[in-house]
Simulated scan of single mutants.
Amino acid sequence: MSGDRKDDHVRLAAAQQAAGARVNGFDDVTFVHHALDGIDADRVSLHTEIAGTRLPLPFYINAMTGGSEMTGAVNRDLAIAARETGVAIASGSVSIALGDPDVASTFRVLRDENPDGFVMANLGVERSADDALRAVELLDADALQVHVNAVQETVMPEGSRSFSTWPASLERIVAAVDVPVIVKEVGFGLSARTLQRLADIGVAYADVSGNGGTDFVRVENERRPRRDYTYLEGWGQSAVACLLDAPAGAPELLASGGVRSPLDVARALALGARGVGVSGSFLSVVLDGGAEALRERISDWAMHLTSLLALLGAEDLAALRSTDVVVGGATAEFCAARGVDLSALAQRTLGRSSNVR
C-alpha cells in the first residue's frame, strides 16, 4: 500500500462530498414534534460513554487517513481540532506504517497533537495480533478500531479476495490487545447476523458504518482502468437500517456513514447509538479551512445538538432514546422485510413497551 493510494483516497472522498447529496437512510427518520415538550437548553447534557470512557460529546472524528506527507498534514489538523473541542478521534488504517516506519509520524501526530484525548487506532481485520499490539502502541491508543471491508477489497485493484480467515483473525486480536476493540465497517453496514457473530466472538463494541456517505466502491472503482464495478455502487445497508435491525445481544453500538448534520447525529442517538462517527463532512471542512475551521464546525454542531435535545425535551442521551420517532421510506421497507416492528418507536412517550429489536 503506497502513500499515493492514501492521497487518492482523500482526493476521491473529497470529490464525492463536493458532488452533493446522495440517497441517505437518515432522511427516512423523523422525530414526532410535541410543541409543549421543550426544555431549557442549559439543562441538556451531551455526555456519553464510548468504549468505557466518558466523553463530553457524542460524536467524534472517525477514521480517515494517514501514510503520506499530505495526509499527515490532514491528521495534524484533525488532531488539533479534537484537542480543542474534546471529541474523540480515530486514525486511518495504520497498516502502511507497520511496514514503513518512515510514515509512522503521519499517524503518530494524532497523539502528539492531542496528548490527553481519546484516540482510536485503526487496523484491518486480516492483520495479526502482533500487528494489532503495534498499532495500539504507535498511537498510545485508548481503543482499537478493526475495520472489515470485504466490498472495498473486492473492488480495490490490489485488494484481497480471501475472507474466510477473518473471524479467527478477529478473535485473536480481541484476545491479544488490552484496550477496547471496536469492529467497524467502512460504509456498507453491519447486519444483525454479523453483529450477533461479533458478540459471539467476544466483541463488545461495533460501529455499524452504513452506506450513504463515502462509497469505497466508487473510490476504488475510480482507480481501476476500466471502471468496471460501477454496478456495486450503493451496496449494503444504511446506519439507520443497521441500528434498527440489530439483535438484542449485539455489541454496544456506534454509528457512522453519511452523517451530514447535528440532526443526523440526533437521529442515530435516538435509535440506540452511543456515539456517532463523522468522516466526510469533517474532511471537507478541514481541507478547505484547516484545524480552526473544523474546531468551529464541531463547536457549532455541539451547540445545535444541544438545541435539538432541548426542542425534543431530552435532558440527556438516555431521554433522547425515549423520544417518538417515525421511520419511513426505503428503511421502513427494509425493516418490514426483516421483520422489525417500527410501530413502538413512534409511541415511546406513551410509555408503551418496545418490541423493536
Score class of each variant (00 low, 15 high):
Leu308His: 06
Asp7Met: 04
Ser128Cys: 10
Gly66Trp: 01
Trp301Tyr: 14
Asp178Ile: 00
Leu195Pro: 04
Val109Asn: 12
Leu320Asp: 11
Arg267Thr: 04
Ala248Phe: 00
Asp4Leu: 12
Glu126Met: 08
Phe31Cys: 03
His47Ala: 15
Glu185Leu: 07
Val278Lys: 11
Glu171Arg: 13
Leu243Lys: 08
Val219Asp: 02
Trp166Asp: 08
Val240Ser: 06
Val136Glu: 09
Leu294Phe: 12
Leu305Asp: 03
Val327Tyr: 02
Leu283Arg: 14
Ser343Glu: 11
Ser162Arg: 15
Gly236Glu: 07
Ala129Gln: 11
Met120Trp: 14
Asp207Asn: 14
Ala168Val: 06
Asp131Glu: 14
Ala192Trp: 09
Leu98Ala: 10
Ala14Leu: 15
Val186Pro: 02
Ala250Gln: 02
Arg223Val: 01
Val356Cys: 14
His147Thr: 07
Leu133Gly: 08
Asn149Ala: 13
Leu243Ala: 05
Gly275Leu: 11
Pro262Lys: 00
Leu263Glu: 15
Asn221Phe: 03
Met303His: 08
Asp228Asn: 07
Ala346Gln: 01
Met120Ala: 15
Leu190His: 05
Asn149Gln: 06
Glu153Asn: 11
Leu263Arg: 15
Leu263Cys: 03
Ala14Phe: 12
Arg223Met: 07
Ser353Ala: 13
Ile61Trp: 09
Pro262Ala: 06
Gly257Met: 02
Gly290Arg: 09
Ile173Asn: 07
Ala318Leu: 04
Ala239Ile: 03
Asp316Gln: 04
Asp341Leu: 00
Val340Lys: 06
Val94Trp: 05
Arg227Ser: 13
Arg172Thr: 10
Gln16Leu: 10
Leu170Cys: 03
Thr165Ala: 14
Ser209Thr: 15
Pro157Phe: 01
Val219Asn: 10
Arg193Met: 09
Gln145Pro: 07
Leu144Arg: 13
Asp131Gln: 12
Asp131Pro: 12
Pro167Val: 07
Pro58Arg: 10
Thr194Asp: 03
Ala266Tyr: 01
Val181Pro: 11
Val155Met: 06
Arg11Asn: 07
Gly92Asn: 10
Ala318Trp: 01
Leu46Val: 08
Gly213Ala: 11
